[in-house]
């Protein structure tokens, strides 16, 4: 089967070598680079029919990102900073969402039932599909 190698010139072998090398690099590349990127994750804010995504990487700045989401009872203010997100203020009576505080991992969610807003973090390496509370 390998008898045909005998007919290859040096240049053929170099070519084969380069092709193999390029394939290996292109296959291995995503493991090292793309995955790393997706591990950074995104913050997702769901408010009445609107879906806002903020990549976590954008929150690593000196100033916090403020996002205002409109719900049936008014305007809720969401703050994202240094890989974390919280409900800064909300017009709801019980303030459960505000008291939830910061979340920085995938899994827990900030939920405002009266203003119909859900906030969570999605990460590629995230292994959790839900939380019982």
């Amino acid at each position: 089967m390998f008898k045909f190698f005998e007919y290859l010139t040096v240049y053929d072998k170099i070519l084969i070598g380069i092709i193999i090398l390029v394939s290996i690099i292109s296959i291995v590349f995503p493991f090292f680079f793309l995955d790393k990127d997706s591990k950074e994750g995104v913050i997702i804010i769901k408010s009445s029919n609107k879906l806002k995504k903020i990549p976590l990487i954008e929150t690593y700045r000196d100033e916090a990102i403020i996002y205002k989401a409109r719900g049936p009872i008014g305007l809720s203010v969401i703050e994202a900073f240094q890989g974390k997100v919280r409900m800064k203020s909300s017009p709801c009576p019980d303030q459960i969402c505000v008291h939830t505080g910061w979340i920085e991992k995938a899994g827990p969610k900030i939920i405002c039932v009266p203003n119909k807003i859900i906030i969570w973090i999605e990460k590629e390496e995230n292994d959790i599909d839900g939380v019982s509370w």
Binding site: H99, T100, G101, W102, I103, K105, G107, P108, I110, D127, I128, D129, G130, V131, S132, W133
Partner: peptide, 27 residues
């Protein structure tokens, strides 16, 4: 309250955490 049926994807179960009662935003 959660109920699951079957697998999330072939060979992968649903992974469900429990909330930490001491800190509302963590599991």
């Amino acid at each position: 309250n959660i109920r699951v049926n079957g697998e999330k994807s072939p060979g992968r179960s649903w992974h469900i955490g429990i909330r930490d009662p001491a800190t509302p935003a963590s599991i």
